[in-house]
């Protein structure tokens, strides 16, 4: 019985183990290894130990880029939070079937490639795009707004692409709220804003932080959104890494930034766990 059980488990788990080893663990080890190498002037790699790549990260140019990137990610995360809470709180009162439908609708955009969806935004956001045409046509604005090829465009794209990662955990946390607990707060004289601050927020904070991680971390790295909607003018860390590998051909430095990003991610996950979040809830991460 025991032997048979072992065989069954092996058959199903082995492919996953191989997959993880070959496609995730080994590449990361390789990247870690590369990050301590030096590059030669022709884009090749000298297997010579150095920590210069890590020291170079703290160059003022890159620090600025990190800060800018983090700010864009923070704003994106914050906007996603601002959209998700009202959405979840309104949906909370609806019937189960409405909730299910809404959750499915959130997932629909995932059926299309995110790169194509990002290109789609150009049609909406450009100078003579849909949004500007509607606004000027309605007489609300005189001149078209600059909605893309700047930070605004990047943030719109990021929010659009990453919103579901915030919506789903926030919704699931908000839907779990006990109706009676909210009524009890009301009964004790709490006004809507007080109820939100004292009851709803503390009870859903782990869902919100979960969503924030899932939005914040990718939005540091989604270089294609910065490329397409930012017009390549605004670089985020994702662009920097991409450029080091593909354009500047400085693989060791690109590796060092990647490892640095991974460390930041782990640090954030650590904070999440501190706040009482469960690692399983992070799902994809």
């Amino acid at each position: 019985m025991k032997k048979k059980d072992f065989g069954f488990k092996t058959i199903f788990i082995l492919p996953i183990v191989i997959y993880t080893l070959v496609l995730i663990v080994l590449p990361i080890i390789y990247v870690l290894f590369l990050s301590f190498c030096t590059s030669d002037s022709y884009g090749g790699i000298n297997y010579q130990f150095t920590i210069d790549n890590y020291i170079n990260i703290f160059d003022i140019t890159y620090i600025k880029m990190f800060v800018k990137s983090a700010l864009i990610a923070l704003v994106t995360t914050f906007i996603c939070l601002l959209i998700s809470y009202p959405f979840a709180l309104i949906l909370r009162r609806k019937s189960e079937s409405v909730k299910n439908l809404a959750t499915k609708l959130i997932m629909v955009p995932f059926l299309t490639n995110s790169l194509i969806r990002t290109y789609g935004w150009i049609i909406l956001l450009r100078k003579n795009g849909v949004i500007n045409n509607v606004l000027t046509g309605a007489g609300l604005i005189e001149f078209p707004l600059n909605l893309m090829y700047n930070k605004v465009g990047i943030i719109i794209g990021m929010v659009y692409t990453l919103l579901p990662f915030m919506l789903l955990p926030v919704c699931s946390a908000v839907f779990e709220l006990d109706k009676n607990v909210i009524e009890a707060a009301k009964d004790l004289g709490a006004k809507p804003l007080q109820i939100f601050k004292n009851i709803i927020l503390p009870q859903t904070i782990s869902g919100a932080f979960n969503g924030s991680l899932m939005v914040f971390i990718p939005s540091i790295g989604y270089f294609f959104i910065a490329d397409i909607l930012g017009g390549g003018k605004t670089m985020i860390i994702g662009n920097l890494i991409k450029n080091q590998f593909l354009t500047a051909r400085n693989w060791p430095f690109g590796s060092a930034i990647s490892i640095f990003l991974i460390i930041i991610t782990f640090a954030l996950v650590k904070v999440y766990k501190r706040l009482g979040g469960k690692i399983e809830d992070l799902g994809g991460l």
Binding site: N180, V181, A184, D187, Q203
Partner: peptide, 13 residues
């Protein structure tokens, strides 16, 4: 007027 709810509805956090 104050209510004591069936499931008590204490604030868990």
């Amino acid at each position: 007027v104050n209510t004591i709810f069936q499931n008590l509805a204490l604030f868990p956090k």
